[in-house]
Nucleic acid binder design. Structure first.
Lengths: 331, 331
DNA sequence: ATGGTGACGGCAAGCGTTTGCCCCGGGGAT
DNA sequence: ATCCCCGGGGCAAACGCTTGCCGTCACCAT
């Protein structure tokens, strides 16, 4: 029923192989013949069947994009950019949501493997071991994960966290709580390390709370603990967490940034939309999405190349940070 | 290199057809034989090649999901729900972003056609004619578009807009501006009709501005016009537009809701996150995503069934609406 | 004229599955 | 004892495309 290469061949009076070549090896066919074939194809509305093509070339023209939570505002701009880049290269993309579950993540990669030329894992929650294993089965690039032998694009969240801490220190804060995210996220470790350094360099007192789910709820849940800590500022693992924390802190009667300065990470639109607008670490997500696809496509073509690109982050100062008020300490 | 049905056949000592049946027509093979086959498959890590399967069954196990803008906060929760539902049914989903361009939308459907069993068009910008045409080539379901002969899930934004207007009327507003969205969006017409009715019923003065791009920028751009109109309240096509409008209005020295009440549509997270929190029309997006996939799968299986489901919306009153101040009119 | 050389394009195998057809053998009905 | 039926499973074609191989023909150099 659907029009196939055979129909085109019949109509244009050539063999199917010629039709095939007219599309994918243009230099092997005479210009006039090719024109006839293309005309016939056009007339019939012929579209090559990618699945069939995949069967003989073992190239599908598809990519997989796997994220923890599509609805987390960190991801959509990245997905959008990656999708656009893929499309520009004539690739289609499968997008899948793992719901933060590592089992699902692994299963998803495996079940997609045959259908894609490669996959990008965005902020994977999987262990390095499993990722490395998967990378042996299918070209992989990871975003925000450092892994020997696997291509990756990293957003330098460590530098961003450092900037954020310095900003707080300059404002005069001396006791800061760092609200952690999911324990298996690479960014968690980066932030921990960076904040540790800053604390030592400046003699700052740091308290850590977490791990926490990277959601508004997670933020609300830790608010009381943060308030009780007596710290005057907090750096949260992401904007959502920061936002929930701010909301709850305000409900508890605090003023932000008056009583508590809060910094998020991601520079997602919640940071811009919320009030007070959040000071946050900007993550170049669109660039990361594009970069991941480029990297992936490169390793699909060139078989064996792996590489890592690191993208710069920056601190965006908005209205959720201010000097601490010099009241008597609360504890 | 990859393990195929042949390998499994060899290892388990049966013919490939038996292996095939062991997977997809279990009742046609003896239980013991089947167990042997499955064991061999497991041992080898065999996964059926979906592309090959598609070739002979003409069922791909894939779905397409096409949206105007992944980064517009209206879409991600819908995508997430749709994707989850599809996964539960063992379907993979292609997600594509049209960047609000109708040409791209059409081209996307066509280029996916051979690779999916059906597609859902979310808030399509295409004309009815083109959609109907596409629906003839591939099972389609549209979200937020009413179209004879094409399955759809509709969120009753008309009822929502009516509720929103009534809310404003009850608060005492008598001059309201309706900020329109993209002209080709179905919701635009619905809102226009609903507001028209309310205006007549209550003798309200309505002014329309638009069409506008459904973005924060779009909202900022119309703010001055809205302010100059002298109206005391506005109903915007979506939250993003409402949000941009609020921001700009505040920059212009107005207070919201003091000088201007604003209502959005979508109940996306920007409505919750922004300040003042937006009164908005809640859209059951997750349900719509699930419903669309269900509907699509049904028409894929049952060939010829088309249906429309309408989902209820509701008004969420937050902090961006209040009674008008009774000052002298500004014009 | 003769042989050589490309360019062009037909032929057919092969990619991994599914599925209609048929064969085989065992058990129940007669 | 014979016949039938049916469960089980092998065989091979088919799905739509790509690609290595080879034949044909025109054209050029000798």
């Amino acid at each position: 029923m659907a029009v196939t290469i055979k129909d085109v061949a019949r109509v244009s009076g050539v063999h199917v192989s010629t039709v095939s070549r007219a599309f994918s090896a243009t230099h092997l066919v005479n210009a006039d013949t090719r024109a006839r074939v293309l005309a016939a194809a056009e007339e019939l509305g012929y579209r090559p069947n990618r699945a069939a093509r995949a069967l003989s070339t073992s190239r599908t023209g598809n990519l997989g994009l796997i994220v923890a939570d599509i609805a987390n505002p960190f991801f959509p701009p990245l997905l959008k950019a990656a999708q656009a880049q893929a499309r520009a290269r004539d690739y289609h993309v499968f997008i899948a949501d793992t719901d933060e579950q590592t089992r699902v993540e692994e299963e998803l990669v495996r079940s997609m493997a045959k259908q894609v030329d490669g996959a990008v894992l965005v902020a994977p929650r999987l262990t390095n071991r499993v990722i490395a294993e998967l990378a042996r089965e299918i070209p992989l690039v990871v975003v925000n994960r450092r892994l020997r032998g696997v291509s990756g694009v990293l957003m330098d969240v460590g530098a961003g966290a450092r900037r954020a801490m310095e900003h707080l220190v300059e404002l005069g804060h001396r006791e800061i709580v760092v609200v952690g995210g999911p324990s298996r996220a690479w960014t968690s470790g980066e932030i921990e390390r960076a904040t540790e350094h800053i604390a030592q360099d400046h003699g700052i007192l740091i308290q850590r709370v977490g791990p926490n789910p990277p959601t508004e709820e997670g933020g609300r849940a830790v608010a009381e603990e943060v308030v009780a800590s007596g710290a005057t500022a907090v750096l949260a693992h992401n904007d959502l967490l920061a936002f929930g924390l701010v909301r709850r802190a305000i409900e508890l009667g605090l003023s932000v940034p008056g009583d508590l300065s809060v910094i998020g990470v991601d520079n997602s639109h919640v940071a811009r939309y919320s009030s007070p607008a959040l000071t946050t670490v900007d993550m170049p997500v669109a660039e990361a999405g594009r970069g991941a696809v480029d990297l992936l496509l490169r390793s699909v073509d060139a078989a064996e190349s792996t590489g890592t690109v690191t993208l710069e982050t920056s601190l965006v100062v908005r209205a959720s940070t201010a000097p601490p008020v010099l009241s008597q300490k609360r504890h």
